[in-house]
Computed example of a mutant assay.
Amino acid sequence: MRVLMIEDTVDLAEAVVARLARAGAVCDHAACIEEARDFRAVQKYDALVLDINLPDGSGLTLLRDMRAGGDRTPVLMLTALTSVDDRVQALDLGADDYLGKPFDQRELEARLRALVRRDADQKGERIVLGPLSFAPAEQVAHLGEAKLDLTRREAALLDILLRHAGQFLTKQRLYDSLFGFEDADVGVNAIELYIARLRKKLSGSPVAITTQRGVGYRIGLE
Score class of each variant (00 low, 15 high):
M1R: 03
M1K: 06
V3M: 02
L4E: 02
M5W: 04
M5Y: 04
A13R: 00
E14P: 07
E14A: 12
A15L: 15
V16F: 06
V17M: 09
R19S: 13
A21W: 10
A23R: 02
V26R: 01
C27V: 07
I33N: 00
A41H: 07
V42W: 13
V42M: 14
K44Q: 15
D46L: 10
V49Q: 01
L50H: 02
L50E: 00
P55K: 08
P55V: 06
D56I: 12
D56G: 11
G57N: 10
G57K: 10
L60M: 11
L60C: 12
G69N: 06
D71M: 04
R72T: 08
T73S: 08
T73D: 05
P74I: 01
P74K: 00
L76D: 00
T79Y: 03
S83C: 11
V84G: 12
L91P: 08
L91A: 11
D92A: 14
G94M: 03
G94V: 04
A95T: 06
Y98Q: 04
L99W: 05
L99H: 06
K101C: 05
F103V: 05
D104L: 10
Q105A: 14
Q105C: 14
E107F: 05
E107P: 03
E107D: 08
E109M: 12
R111G: 01
V116W: 04
D121Y: 14
G124E: 08
R126F: 12
I127C: 13
L129H: 01
L132S: 04
F134K: 02
F134G: 00
A135M: 15
P136N: 08
Q139W: 07
L143W: 02
L143M: 05
G144I: 07
G144M: 07
E145N: 12
A146W: 10
K147T: 04
L148C: 05
L148P: 01
T151M: 11
R152I: 11
E154C: 09
L158H: 02
D159E: 08
D159P: 06
D159R: 07
L161K: 03
Q172W: 14
R173L: 12
L174V: 04
S177Q: 12
F179S: 03
A184E: 15
V186R: 15
G187T: 13
N189P: 14
I191F: 09
I191S: 03
E192C: 14
E192H: 14
L193T: 15
L193I: 14
Y194P: 04
R197F: 06
K200L: 10
K201P: 03
L202C: 01
S203I: 06
G204L: 09
P206D: 08
P206E: 07
A208E: 07
I209Y: 03
T210M: 11
G216E: 01
Y217T: 00
